[in-house]
């Protein structure tokens, strides 16, 4: 389902130094519905890799194929639309929008994908993450664990083929961490979405059936 080929990315360096190479991935594939933990040290390029897969960062070369679509070759507007419809993104620092309620944060995820499933669907998702009663709360009124559960509901609102999670539990304590990971795994399995979680935390990695080192697929480092 997801396949990367000959992916190259370097960030330009200040003052004439050669560009800093971050990604060089000859090949990597994730099957539909597969759940993978990708472990790497801080600064090893985990976030960059997820951003490339999500079409937020364009690689210098290579293919990022999701089923039949090479995201790296879409123009920006199409990439945005593709991301809205097919990729769910759970962020490291949670990133709920403070001006919107839990329900509206989920609804916003749907809006960009032209998902007309409506409020009932969003409420349903919140129920699945155990926050049906907190639907009208604003992020500041929710705990970190609750906020990340809203983040998960938002990422999965459009039934994406692929869910990406960037250190989703780094802001949480151990108990919340396990609950959030279990929830994410359960919901992705339910909708058949593949799940890639990147982390530097072995405790997170241990909870996944498949664990890879970033260095296993990335030739930089």
């Amino acid at each position: 389902m997801l396949s990367l080929r000959n992916l190259q990315l370097a960030y330009p360096s200040p003052d004439g130094e050669p560009p800093a190479r971050v990604l060089d991935v000859p090949t990597w594939a994730v099957a539909a519905g597969e759940q993978v933990a990708l472990v790497g040290a801080s600064g090893s390029g985990k976030t960059t890799l997820l951003n490339v897969i999500a079409g937020i960062v364009t690689p210098d070369a290579g293919e990022v194929r999701l089923d039949d679509t090479d995201i790296a070759r879409l123009d920006e507007a199409r990439r945005d639309r593709f991301r809205a419809a097919h990729i769910g993104y759970v962020f490291q620092s949670i990133h709920l929008l403070p001006a919107f309620t839990a329900l509206e944060n989920v609804a916003l995820g749907m809006k960009f994908a032209d998902n007309r499933a409506g409020k009932a669907h969003a409420l349903d998702l919140l129920a699945k993450v155990g926050l049906r009663e907190r639907a009208r709360y604003f992020p500041r009124q929710l705990s970190a664990g609750q906020q990340q559960r809203v983040g998960i509901a938002r990422a999965l609102a459009n039934r994406p083929k692929l869910a990406l999670a960037d250190e989703p539990t780094s802001a949480l304590d151990a108990r919340n961490r396990d609950a959030v990971l279990d929830l994410m795994q359960k919901l992705c399995a339910e909708i058949g979405a593949a799940l890639i979680v990147v982390t530097h935390d072995e405790a997170v990695a241990r909870r996944f059936p498949t664990t890879l080192r970033l260095s296993d697929i990335n030739r930089v480092n």
Binding site: A54, E76, A77, D80, R83, A84, A85, Y89, L97, F112
Partner: peptide, 16 residues
């Protein structure tokens, strides 16, 4: 800026 980046990551287009 961060909120805007999040919106974009959720699939919002620049012109939106």
């Amino acid at each position: 800026r961060r909120e805007i980046a999040v919106l974009r990551a959720l699939g919002a287009r620049r012109r939106t």
